[in-house]
Design a protein around this nucleic acid. Sequence first.
DNA 1: GGTTAATTTTAGAGATGTCTAAATTCGTAG
DNA 2: CTACGAATTTAGACATCTCTAAAATTAACC
Lengths: 220, 220
Amino acid sequence: MGVNLTHSMQDYLKTIYMLTADHTRVPTTRIAQTLNVQPASVTSMIKKLADCHLVDHQSYHGVALTESGRSAALEMIRHHRLLETYLSTALGYDWADVHEEADRLEHYISEEFEDRIASLLGNPLYDPHGDPIPGRDGVLPPTPRLCLLDVPAPATVVIRRVDSSQRDALVFLSTRGITIGATCTVVQKASSYVVIDLAPTSKTIRLPNAIGQRIFVDRV
Amino acid sequence: MGVNLTHSMQDYLKTIYMLTADHTRVPTTRIAQTLNVQPASVTSMIKKLADCHLVDHQSYHGVALTESGRSAALEMIRHHRLLETYLSTALGYDWADVHEEADRLEHYISEEFEDRIASLLGNPLYDPHGDPIPGRDGVLPPTPRLCLLDVPAPATVVIRRVDSSQRDALVFLSTRGITIGATCTVVQKASSYVVIDLAPTSKTIRLPNAIGQRIFVDRV
DNA sequence: GGTTAATTTTAGAGATGTCTAAATTCGTAG
DNA sequence: CTACGAATTTAGACATCTCTAAAATTAACC
Ligand SMILES: [Mn+2]
Ligand SMILES: [Mn+2]
Ligand SMILES: [Mn+2]
Ligand SMILES: [Mn+2]
């Protein structure tokens, strides 16, 4: 039973994990949309995962991960985020390009490979987008959640995380020098945009809300 | 048609390439043994490869690569040997451990990944076992072919390549400090073994013919 | 509470890559 | 030159993961 997970099983587990961050059950259709497959395909994979005790499936009422399903998902997320960090730090990839490569390789690296890149990187806690990297023990560092748009106007913040789900936004940000760890001052808040001064150059940047929404910070 | 090759198709092409180094056709059974599958499975895969014009199959008379089959095989061998070199050089893998990891990853790295590790390694011509790495253009550097056992007794040589097909032999050699690029002097040749002095320490090592057979050198 | 629309599951099929068992072909030994 | 044994292919099956189309279930509205 469930020791050897196929590439597909791992993708489903990872997706279910992501979609159940709020600890509720996730409906079939949601998984289908995310993985770009038909709902019928999801149902049949869910059955297989349930047979392996990786998910809890209640017919017509969605699915949730079991403890072992959660572990398997976190293992895959660890691979993904370590790979992204490695591709960025050691191989010079742009942060907009790491996802695609990591999403394939995550299924095929060995535990030795995982350990070696983790160790070379100094066992990092966050990936290039600021997403937390689960430890080998499955413990997840805290996710930066304070949104740039929720910071009142005159305030200095450090950029801790960006939403990495849209490549365009990542390119927009890196083009303007906005990266994880950068310090900036929020100088003006309008209804549809926010203006920041980016340290150390004090370059002034106007960010549309659609972008500001995707940036998470710590106040200094 | 043959643009997108599956993992399996790539493994078959690589295997056929390896088994046709002598430019003859290779029989079905030989491929089956190498890939640990049944001859019937080889026949059905060969048909598919022939449909894609990657191999030339004459029923009951074996198979050979076409030009495009050869290119695809060399592309996979380039991935494999670059990965082995990278795992060894950048991640500190032992040369006995690189094969297994590279054999999986070779199918899943992108051309960008290939280019980046090649460039970081300084576009190496040989992998950690001394096997030649095909260029992006498919050109293969020369394979060191002078066997240690064929060198007359008092002679100084540089170790250029070892047969990497048996893990045990690789462990045996690295345990004794024998690596690619090492210089040694052949001091005695007996019928069942050869004695060498390994520079720079002048450590004397007696190698059984079964091992010596697997070492290829350049005379100095 | 019954009807209806959306969601979900079931049923059946195709693609891929493997297997076993049976049939075919080849080459050689008598 | 024929018959035999080995190699190879064919035939039919199974596992995996996907699809489309049809049936079943749910939930919500009147
Ligand atoms: Mn994936
Ligand atoms: Mn990321
Ligand atoms: Mn392989
Ligand atoms: Mn090698």
